[in-house]
Simulated assay, not measured.
Amino acid sequence: MRNEIEQVGPRLRAARQARGWTLEELATRTGLSVSTLSRLEAGKRQASLELLLPITRQLGIRIDDLLPGESGDPRVRRETVRRDGMLIAPLTLDRSPVQAFKITYAPAPAPPAPRVHDGFEWLYVLSGRLRLVLDDTEHVLERGEAAEFDTRLPHSMTAMPEGPAEVLSIFSASGERIHTHLGGA
């Protein structure tokens, strides 16, 4: 536990430096003193929620990001599933903050009924052609094309009739739950 706490300061420093901010810039944004921030980063000041909340909000990170992740086997060993004409291969660990999948869509003569749910989706077409119906507008994405959309818009996806489409999909947590567990689009 002590070793984990000792990593908070260096992780704060790394997050600040990744933004290209000086201690002075972060101090101005958080309302904390340069001295306090410097001592936190050096491990000479005990980290508290009162101090960490404004810092993490400004840096755009979570408090969890300051703690070391679980070490162990980084390989993803989750089962591929077949559902609603899709072959879904997980590419991230179950506990990852975002979820990535390689999804193979079966060809279909027409798109399925559109669905809506909370979340965001980012996708990249690896092979084939993907029909994305988004808010009543049909888009055909070719190999090498990408799309990003708010899943609160009515949407559906399928491969074009001539053959399957392989897609790399990245979901926010809420979007992943709908698509891979509850029978989403």
Score class of each variant (00 low, 15 high):
R2M: 15
R2I: 15
E6Y: 08
P10R: 00
P10E: 00
P10M: 00
R13F: 10
G20P: 12
E24V: 08
L26P: 03
G31Y: 03
L32F: 08
T36K: 04
L37E: 05
L37P: 01
R39H: 12
L40S: 00
E41I: 03
E41A: 03
E41V: 01
K44P: 12
R45I: 03
R45W: 02
A47N: 00
A47W: 01
T56L: 01
R57T: 11
Q58D: 12
G60Y: 06
G60S: 07
D64A: 15
D64L: 14
D64P: 10
D65H: 10
L66P: 04
L67A: 00
E70T: 13
G72P: 05
G72D: 07
G72K: 03
P74S: 11
R77T: 14
R77C: 13
T80Y: 03
T80D: 08
T80E: 09
R83H: 07
L87M: 13
I88Q: 02
A89D: 13
A89P: 11
R95H: 10
S96I: 02
P97A: 07
F101D: 09
T104L: 01
Y105P: 05
A106D: 00
A113N: 08
R115E: 15
V116P: 05
D118G: 13
L123T: 09
L123W: 05
L123H: 03
L126C: 05
S127H: 10
G128N: 12
D135T: 12
D135R: 14
D136G: 08
D136A: 07
T137G: 09
E138S: 02
E138M: 07
L141S: 05
R143L: 13
E148M: 14
E148V: 14
T151P: 12
P154I: 02
P154T: 04
M157W: 07
A159D: 00
A159G: 02
P161R: 01
E162M: 11
G163K: 03
G163C: 01
V167T: 09
V167C: 11
V167P: 12
S169K: 08
S169N: 09
S169R: 10
S169I: 12
A173K: 11
S174F: 10
H181Q: 15
H181L: 14
G183S: 06
G183A: 06
G184A: 02
